[in-house]
Amino acid sequence: MSPTIGAIVIPVSDLESAKKVYTALYGEPHTDQPYYVGFNVNGFEVSLNPQGEGGPVAMTDVDDLDATRNALLAAGATEQSAPRTVAPDVRICVLADSDGNPFGLRGK
């Protein structure tokens, strides 16, 4: 699989208010938990994260998260959040480019 941007994670300070706005736009969420609200928009994941900081982060789907992460770190990216499991067989991490712009990886 080629790397594909498959999701965006949006940090929110008021999950209930944000959920109302995004539900009006995208319909009912497929996941509605205090720690995460997720919407499927024609196969693209729009996620609300009440624990997030900063701006939205595009998540790129990759086959091998560790190999891709290591290659990006070797190329000069820096780590903002280490790999962690968020669902069965799904791990994520957030890196930044040389200007500090965040981007995420989502994979196994």
Rank of each mutant, 00 (worst) to 15 (best):
V37R: 01
F103G: 01
T23Y: 11
V46G: 06
A58H: 13
D97W: 11
S47T: 07
N70A: 14
G76H: 13
A82P: 08
P88V: 01
I92P: 03
D63R: 09
R69P: 01
Y36A: 03
V90N: 07
A87C: 00
V37L: 01
Q33G: 09
G55T: 02
M1L: 15
G27A: 01
Y22D: 11
A82V: 09
G55Y: 04
G104L: 06
Q33K: 13
A58C: 14
T23M: 09
A74S: 14
R91K: 13
C93E: 04
Q33T: 12
V37G: 01
D61W: 08
Q33P: 00
P88Q: 11
V41M: 12
G52V: 00
A7Q: 04
P88E: 12
L73M: 14
L15F: 11
D66N: 08
G6I: 15
S81W: 04
Y22R: 07
Y22G: 04
D63E: 11
A74Y: 08
F103D: 10
S2C: 10
A74V: 05
V62Y: 04
D32V: 03
D14W: 04
P102W: 01
N40D: 15
Q80N: 05
R69V: 02
E45V: 07
A24M: 11
L15M: 12
D99H: 15
P29A: 03
A96I: 07
V94P: 00
T60H: 10
D66P: 00
N42I: 13
I10R: 05
N40Y: 05
P83W: 06
A71D: 12
G6E: 14
D99R: 15
G6K: 11
S98W: 10
S98I: 11
D61N: 14
L72H: 10
S13P: 08
D32M: 06
P56Q: 11
L105I: 06
L65K: 04
G27P: 06
S98Y: 10
P50D: 04
D99E: 15
R106D: 00
V21Y: 08
Q51D: 12
S47K: 02
T68R: 11
V41Q: 13
E79Q: 14
I5E: 13
E28N: 08
T78V: 03
K20M: 09
T23K: 04
G54P: 00
V37P: 00
A67C: 00
A67K: 09
D63N: 07
N49H: 05
L73Q: 07
A58N: 12
D99W: 13
E45C: 05
T60Y: 13
A87W: 06
L72T: 02
G6C: 13
T31F: 08
L73Y: 03
